[in-house]
């Protein structure tokens, strides 16, 4: 097996339409600077700067007093810079609590989703099993449906299912983190299964066969042979799912009615009114909301883009 040429450890590629992420970020080779190139650079640079305007101005205005920007406009030289807007936003928006709410939902959701998806992906891809395709179609299609389609029965069920008070303040599944975690797991699993089964399918079947001859149990094959080889895909998926779960707005808006208990993205729906007319405090609030996901993106950009191109079937 050691003579297999596939470098699975470095390339998270695996779907019919994906490419190793490294190729996306290939380094430019030296090309002489021609006038056409200059025009191209000017065009791309201008557009790129324009593209950054909403974020850069959010950041910039978040340090400036509202009185100043309302008088001179967003695009003006600063007279005074400070953290007052952040203090105000923190005070009104309780972002520390919201980060905590987010973590309580995000971490279990992320771990469970990827774990469960890897189980079914393993089962479906490693064994030519009768309903293999049926199950994958079921999972993938389920992942593509709009959430609004199934929300009413879910909501009506969740508000009738009791939970002990220790698990839910509302003593119902509705209004608890458990429900939101369950929703993320049920929904996101589709995409992860799609990606992981594509990936695992490319791992040579001989791996399993050899293991079976050695008498390794199914679980051993999954946990000690296949999962380690799947690591690049898992990394890419974890990064991507982090962003998607972090960015979820709908589920927590519907299933967590208490604004204070919502994760940060859903809490946006009641943040607007907290700040009303002060655009710069709103800017500071926006920065609080986007910092975690941007930090993860910049730190793990490679995995991010790999994940996206890897399974690119998802909006």
């Amino acid at each position: 097996m050691s003579d297999m040429k596939f470098d699975f450890d470095t390339s998270p590629s695996g779907s019919a339409f994906s490419e190793p992420s490294d190729n996306v970020h290939f380094e430019a080779t030296k090309t002489p600077l021609r006038p056409a190139r200059v025009v191209l650079h000017v065009f791309l640079a201008s557009l790129g700067i324009l593209w950054m305007v909403p974020l850069v101005i959010s950041l910039y205005s978040s340090f400036r007093p509202f009185a100043e920007t309302s008088r001179k406009g967003f695009l003006s030289a600063p007279e005074s810079l400070g953290l007052a807007n952040y203090r105000e936003a923190l005070d009104r928006g309780d972002f520390i609590d919201k980060y905590w709410n987010t973590a309580l939902i995000l971490i279990p959701s992320l771990v469970l989703t990827i774990f469960l998806a890897s189980l079914i992906a393993f089962a479906a891809s490693r064994y030519s099993w009768r309903f293999n395709i049926f199950f994958l179609v079921l999972f993938t299609a389920g992942n593509l449906l709009p959430q609004q389609i199934m929300v009413a029965p879910l909501f009506q069920a969740a508000r009738r299912i009791p939970l002990p008070e220790i698990m839910s303040n509302s003593e119902k599944l509705n209004g608890s983190n458990w429900m939101i975690i369950l929703l993320h797991v049920g929904f996101q699993m589709g995409f992860c299964t799609f990606v992981l089964s594509n990936y695992m399918k490319l791992l040579p079947k001989e791996l399993n066969e050899a293991a079976m001859v050695d008498g390794a149990s199914l679980w051993t094959q999954y946990w000690t042979i296949i999962m380690p080889l799947t690591r690049p895909a898992l990394a890419a998926l974890a990064t991507l799912e982090f962003a998607w779960i972090y960015n979820d707005f709908f589920w927590a808006v519907i299933f967590e009615q208490r604004g204070d208990d919502r994760p940060i993205t859903s809490a946006l729906s009641n943040l607007g009114g907290e700040f009303v007319t002060d655009t710069n405090v709103v800017s500071a609030a926006s920065i609080f909301v986007i910092i975690p996901v941007l930090a993860v993106y910049f730190a793990l950009q490679k995995h991010f883009i790999a994940g996206l191109t890897l399974g690119a079937n998802k909006g």
Binding site: V253, I254, Q257, G259, S266, S269, N270
Partner: peptide, 8 residues
């Protein structure tokens, strides 16, 4: 106007 905006 949806449910989530009715917090009053």
């Amino acid at each position: 106007m949806t449910a989530e905006f009715q917090q009053s």
